[in-house]
Amino acid sequence: MARPIWHGAINFGLVTVPVDLYSATEDHTISFRQFERGTSDRIRYKRVNERTGKEVAYSDIVKGAEIGGGEYVIIEPEELDRIAPGRSRTIDISSFVDLDEIDPIHYQKTYWLSPSKEEYGKAYGLLLQAMRKTNRAGVATFVMRGKEYLTAIRAGDDDLLLLTTLLFVEDIRDPAKEIKSLPEITTARGKELDLAISLIDSMVDDWNPHDYHDTYTQRVEQLIEDKKQGREVVAGEEPSSPTKVVDLFEALSKSVESRKKRRSGSAEEKVDLGSLSKAELDKMARELDIKGRSKMSREELEAAVAAASGARRAS
């Protein structure tokens, strides 16, 4: 069981609900260790006092802010708490907004909020149901580890409130200051634009996160396994070359044609359901509108897809 990353309370009008905050996401990328090349010596970071060269323990480290001329002011955690009393203990909902109004550029990381004790479940449930019914997200701020977070709180599918941290406007860079040459958008030619739209239309699909997997990490894992077994490492495909401007129309035409062929081909060919993953079967079940698919095991999905696609072919 995970431990909460923060304890506090949600303030919603005059209602206060004590909650615990848990990370809802985790990074699964392979964490490499560092070694000195040619040796089996690990690289380790050590916190040392620059004058004595001795290691410094966590409990003896304080934070300092540079004030110029190589001078620092030391700030104790209690001093940070004192300038905003209570802010590090409460999540204050100031307004409710439509989630679609928030530009995804602001999204950072998502957490679960759960009532810190069973007795707070009633108020928590009330807030969750009211948010679900109105389809609104509460905009709130709170302080965690000496940093203020802007957040959007919404009702999740698992009867839990979700808190997503958002970037403040001042955290978002101005592209005009950062990008060497901003693209000059000229009006697209009619036929090219029509073809590009056709290509997009031919690739329209429902958003299903199960369709997407971190294949790069899978390749890294394979590389590690191959090296462990002393096998030859096979190089991946080279990236495709950029399309020349004169070939744009032709490239678009071929892409649309290829998508059309793929679609008609996939409709005709008989799929070996036994070779498909649960995610692939789930996608087919969705396309066949099979009810209760989200609760089915892989085997149940395979049987339901086989039955539904057989019935569809017969009709």
Binding site: Q34, E36, T39, D41, R42, I43, R44, Y45, K46, R47, V48, E50
Partner: peptide
């Protein structure tokens, strides 16, 4: 970390 002030990376 490149600055010698705070941390040092050493081969263990």
């Amino acid at each position: 970390v490149d600055s010698p002030r705070h941390l040092v990376a050493t081969a263990a």
